[in-house]
Nucleic acid binder design. Structure first.
Lengths: 102, 102
DNA sequence: ACCTTATTTCCAGTAATATAGAAATAGTTA
DNA sequence: TAACTATTTCTATATTACTGGAAATAAGGT
């Protein structure tokens, strides 16, 4: 049950990170662009965010495993981690919802 | 699209509230006891939390609509809001996941 | 009115978060 | 190397969060 609590801690950490409007917008944007991802600059332009603010948010998403960053030349491509997101949703369905939930 | 952003704000607020380990434990407990709910004191005993801390967390859950409180005599019965939780999960599935997501 | 149980409010301290301008670094190309 | 674009790090400020002890309030029973 120590292990189970570690899972809860991780889930809580991820929810917390998504629980900021700006960051949720960033993550939703990454989801929308799909598996090909988008460079930081594009996210910055399309969401009108200051660079330093955006960097902060993206790093936090990466820290909890909800996004990845990979350099492609000059640009840093960001992608949502769909697997992690699905796992997060599954946890909520399994542990924080009624059995008959859908 | 202003309306859409209000929805995102609400979702973010709910995620943030669930994004605290103690609070997530409280919410999960309320989910587990089901629709009949549990008095504050029982939550306090079973999760070993100081009263003032627990009150704080429950109030935050209520504030974002994820839980309810109703007095039954001396006790205050807390219940998870399953409808709200299902709506939250649906948002994540619809807006923050791939189309083919399960 | 008093006593007991249940829960909240008040308060304080400590820590974490969000934000963003300015300076610094990384990579590419000339 | 110089110049250019892309992105991060540094730094600061203001706001908010988490925690829990002690005192206050609520409800019901005697």
């Amino acid at each position: 049950m120590i292990k189970k609590d570690m899972k809860l801690e991780k889930i809580a950490a991820q929810l917390k990170i998504l629980g900021n409007p700006t960051r949720l917008r960033v993550f939703r944007f990454l989801v929308r662009v799909g598996t090909k991802g988008a460079p930081v600059g594009r996210v910055q332009r399309e969401l009108s965010l200051p660079g330093s603010t955006l960097t902060n948010h993206i790093q936090r998403l990466v820290n909890v495993g909800l996004a990845r960053q990979e350099r492609k030349g000059v640009e840093l491509i960001c992608t949502a981690n769909f697997t992690a997101m699905r796992a997060l949703i599954s946890y909520l369905e399994d542990e924080c919802c009624l059995e008959e939930c859908d």
